[in-house]
Design a protein around this nucleic acid. Structure first.
Length: 755
DNA sequence: ATAGCGACGCTTTTT
DNA sequence: GCGTCGCTAT
């Protein structure tokens, strides 16, 4: 427990009963959580089997497990470290039959949800203009997040004709998912709560198991997650939640800030520990962040402080246009680079994804390498989804959505009319879509396509039969899909850059499959698909060590830090967004302000913020005011650049000290000439080890290795120890891995198992 | 069955 | 300004 400050120590050592840790930005939150787990195990003799740590992202879960491993060596494998969603999947895979579903369910992402809703809108003959799938899905999702069933929803909205129609869609949506043996993300939590409600014995089993529960990023939990945690902790009440109400920025996704604000009401005996010392930022940056967030009403009282030095002032630059802003940022980055700053230490943050376009164009022109987070997720790319749907059909033929997606991909002459006929026939006879395909002669009106469908079914069945061979791996299936469908072959014929990028993505998918196989105990399609469904692209951030500037939205930056941070587009209407300014809910603006706070506190050494007077938004030029958030930063922390005599600035500008004019910006010329380019598909990244692959418990002599020992490493696979060199109380060992060659590592830190 | 064209709509997105 | 989606003409 060394190197912790008093507050951190206090948080680690409070073991019994509810505990709320309010952890400000950069206050060493993860350290506290990992040390607390270590304390439970090492000092309090808690069996790691009885500890549950919940996070929101796989990345956070992996990091946490790694850090606990490093802290205590072996034994941490039996701590449940997982995301809400993968925890629920794991519970449901074991018990979902008790609530009338089958254990091999598949998970639908939002693309698949949309297709289901679209079909229902059509079948129910609703006007798609009045009932957009997007709108309906968000209503359904919101209902589920609040644990409102279709019946509840119908009853609660009895007076609205529209709501009654939506209730019908909701009910039908659930019915179809059930028939497809599928759950969406909201269902994963919803059904787990329902399982616990209806099966007290199952709940008791998990309550007994999870005697100590920790929840990270508690400010981001929604209502169902709140209920779930409450259920699990009800018996032992050893619940520790960690979060920062000032960093609650996901209300639009259902996060309920009152879960953290009212924790003490929910648990009156809760101990509260505030972590207010910041170890990340200079005091100028931190003070600026404090001043901004102080304008919010609905927050827990706390003020971050730091022992770090004052540092440079924040630079605020006002540019004439978005083009100039992008040029200005690019040239600032160039000058940083010439001073020896690594591009990896620089990040450019913005409110909306489309702001990246201008930045990208300028960075390309200036020859500054960058990596952009955002855009289409790897697993949502067309070609990746196509292949994944083949795998889904092979794993779960009831998955109508998947079957319909691939039945004519690549094109094999089975058109919409045929698909609709089969669909109707299936619905009328209460059959799965694929059942009808198997017996296609029975289906009226598909005379012409019968042979084509037979060809398709034969192909699928041929691949499916491969699974009878116990040695058949998911990658063999994968190869068979590629070969029998001719998918890559057809792309090859296209001979375009786009087709080549798609092939690259498919190869990348194959890499993921192989990586999965190497880490899995019993590789199988269902588990592979589950990992794919639960893994976010976000997990790959920071994996690449080549020198690149990072571009992303402020939302995505949460949890990250960079020595140099640019926040651009600081204009009222953009940030804070117009929606939040116009909203009659005052919390909308407060949430934007929290987002601003998150952005500022990402910076360690130096923060640049900027605004443009004119910006093109949705094809038309807007004249902008400097963001109110900029004006909330006291001038002593800021150095001003730019022309403040032009339009868009009045009133509060007197707070600023005027400095040099930005007159070195190129205007206009060539700005639109920069060619559009398609960003290289993201690659690399470690596959989430998730559940089921934890090493067996092994408390023994795992820290001592001898030359010749056969070992297995979590990431690197099998290898042989070739050298052991004492280094202080530790030992540096060299291992020759079959797959990746020789690696040196410290014995006490390495995540390895002796074979 | 599919290419092509016009209408629309448009913050943020841990799973 | 740009991408997605659905309808229409071939």
């Amino acid at each position: 427990m060394q190197g912790l400050n008093n507050k951190q120590l206090e948080a680690c050592c409070h073991i019994d009963g509810p505990l709320l840790i309010l952890a400000g930005a950069g206050s060493g939150k993860t350290r506290v959580i990992t040390h607390r787990i270590a304390y439970l195990m090492n000092e309090m003799d808690v069996n790691p089997y009885n500890i549950l740590a919940i996070t929101f992202t796989n990345k956070a879960a992996n990091e946490m497990r790694e850090r606990v491993d490093n802290l205590i060596g072996f034994g941490s494998e039996s701590v449940w470290v997982s995301t809400f969603h993968s925890m629920c999947v794991r519970i449901l895979r074991k018990h979902i039959d008790k609530i009338g579903m089958s254990k091999d369910f598949t998970i639908y992402d939002d693309t698949e949800q949309k297709v289901v809703v679209r079909e229902i809108i059509k079948d129910e003959k609703l006007d798609p203009k009045l009932y957009s799938e997007k709108n309906i899905l968000s209503i359904i999702s919101k209902a589920k997040e609040d644990y409102v069933s279709p019946d509840d929803y119908e009853r609660d909205n009895a007076t609205s004709y529209r709501s009654q129609a939506i209730a019908r869609v909701y009910r039908e949506y659930q019915r179809r998912l059930q028939r497809n043996n599928a759950l969406d993300f909201d269902d994963l939590i919803y059904k787990t709560i329902f399982l616990f409600e209806t099966n007290p014995d199952v709940l008791r089993e998990y309550q007994e198991r999870f005697k100590y529960i920790m929840v990270d990023e508690y400010q981001d939990t929604n209502h169902t997650q709140f209920i779930l945690v409450k259920q699990l902790a009800a018996k032992y009440r050893n619940l520790c939640v960690v979060g920062d109400d000032d960093q609650s920025i996901y209300k639009f996704r259902g996060a309920n800030i009152y879960n953290i604000l009212n924790f003490e009401k929910q648990y009156p005996d809760a101990k509260v520990v505030k972590l207010e010392q910041n170890y990340r930022s200079t005091s100028n940056i931190l003070n600026a962040a404090n001043s901004v967030i102080a304008n919010n009403e609905g927050r827990k009282d706390k003020t971050l402080w730091t022992e770090n030095e004052e540092g440079e002032k924040i630079t605020f630059t006002k540019y004439g246009t978005g083009f100039e802003e992008a040029s200005g940022i690019a040239s600032k980055i160039r000058s940083l680079r010439s001073q020896g700053v690594s591009l990896n230490d620089i990040s450019v943050l913005y409110r909306t994804n489309n702001q990246s376009r201008l930045l990208e164009e300028k960075l390309i022109m200036e020859n500054i390498p960058y990596i952009l987070y955002g855009g289409t997720d790897f697993y949502k790319r067309m070609e990746v989804k196509d292949i994944v749907c083949y795998l889904k059909v092979l794993a779960n033929p009831c998955d109508d959505m998947a079957v319909k997606r691939i039945i004519n991909v690549p094109k094999r002459g089975i058109g919409d009319t045929t698909i609709n006929k089969i669909s109707t026939f299936a619905n009328e006879n209460n059959l799965d879509f694929y059942d009808v395909l198997l017996d296609i002669e029975e289906c009226p009106g598909v005379s012409r396509a019968v042979d084509k469908i037979k060809g398709f079914v034969d192909m699928v069945e041929e691949i499916r039969n491969m699974q009878n061979d116990p040695d058949c791996l998911p990658s063999n299936i994968f190869d068979a899909v590629i070969e029998k469908t001719g998918y890559v072959e057809l792309l090859n014929l296209e001979n375009t850059d786009e087709a080549r990028a798609r092939i690259e993505n498919i190869n990348e998918l194959k890499n993921k499959v192989v990586t999965y196989e190497e880490s899995a105990e019993y590789p199988n399609l269902v588990e592979l698909l589950e990992e794919i469904a639960l893994v976010a692209d976000n997990d790959n951030i920071e994996d690449d060590d080549t020198d690149k500037v990072t571009l992303m939205t402020l939302h995505r930056a949460k949890g990250l830090e960079f020595p140099y941070v640019f926040i651009c587009g600081m204009e009222d209407g953009l940030f804070p967004s117009k929606m939040s300014i116009d909203s009659d809910d005052p919390d909308a603006l407060e949430e934007e302000r929290r987002l601003c706070y998150v952005g500022i506190t990402r910076a360690m050494e130096k923060l640049f913020i900027s605004a443009a007077e004119q910006r093109m938004i949705n094809g038309s030029t807007n004249y902008c005011q400097v963001s109110r958030f900029v004006k909330e930063i006291p001038k002593q922390y800021v150095e001003m650049q730019g022309d403040f005599t032009r339009l868009g600035d009045n009133g509060d500008s007197s707070r600023f000290a005027f400095k040099n004019k930005a007159n070195n910006m190129l205007f206009g010329v060539g700005d639109n000439a920069a060619a559009r380019y398609s960003s290289k598909p993201k690659t690399g990244g470690s596959f989430n080890p998730g559940f089921g692959k934890a090493f067996p418990m092994d408390f023994g002599d795992s820290k001592t290795y001898c030359v010749g020992d056969k070992v297995r490493h979590m990431k690197f696979g099998n290898g042989i120890v070739t050298e052991v060199k004492p280094a202080g109380s530790d030992a540096e060992i060299t291992v020759d891995f079959e797959r990746v060659g020789e690696k040196k590592m410290f014995a006490s830190l390495v995540k390895m198992k002796k074979l």
